[in-house]
Amino acid sequence: MGFGIYRNGMNKIGFLFFCGFFLAMPIFTSMQAVDMSIQLLLCLIGIALVGIPHGAIDHIIYMEERQPQPILFYSFYFGLMGMYTLCWVYFPVLSFVLFLLLSAYHFGESQFSDLDLSSKGLKWGLNFVWGCSIMSGLILYNLDELIVLSKSIPDVAQFVIVYESEIFIWLVVVSSVTTVAVLLHILKLNQINIERLLREFYLLILIHFCFYALPFMIAFTLYFVTLHSARVLTEEFDYLRKKRLNFSYENFIKLLFPYTLVSVVGSAILLYLSYVGIIKISGVMLALIFISTLTLPHSFVMNDFYRKLNEKVV
């Protein structure tokens, strides 16, 4: 049951995105420039309720089957976070670019989590180009807004060099065309059917249109909350239900709640410390560092999780 992630046609996660998009379109585009504080508030609510929980039980997902020494897992997880934080301190622009690339792959990986292609290189490539297509689209369509925002915050202003590089228009074209070509190739190899192909094309167009038409933060949150986080949460729930006896939605929420709460409170404290000036980094920069350092080990855990899922399917 669940949300029917593995259907070839539209699944309920896709339906949520579709409805969210068609309802958000008239409301937000008619408001012309939506105040950044309103955008932030709406995004924070969506991210706190769905975005954060999707990564809050990484340790449980990883240890459910692999059962390593907890100390080893936590050393690995926090070690990666620490290394990436150091990277941010010494090479902020490089860390930022790495974060964009990592996110692109991670989003692509969750989009095609159910595809077990015979060629691992092809799967890796598809994940990456799909993610590059939507991430570069998000930046390209909102370039002016991003440059203005970055220039207004001193420690984020250094990233303007990335936005002004004019690479994004090429990235959108090349990665989108490559995504289409790879999907067609996979169709030719009979590893997806025509309905799945059409679904992916349609979804890719809708995501791009969403990023183009809606304000930056709203568009990204809509995508991140529905097509990425809700999807991962569903997969995690389906996985745990198979592993644990009588595992219900209630059990899942109870499992997520404490870790989500810790993450939300921890993030709020960090942002507060930045706001009152105890941490000498802007809230935006702090959020970027915090999210990216979490994304790195989370991507490794999810990569392992999807490998396990596909091994079971085989």
Binding site: T29, S30, Q32, A213
Partner: peptide, 11 residues
């Protein structure tokens, strides 16, 4: 959304 006052026009 394209009609006069529609959000694809205004936005």
């Amino acid at each position: 959304m394209c009609m006069p006052g529609g959000w694809l026009n205004t936005g």
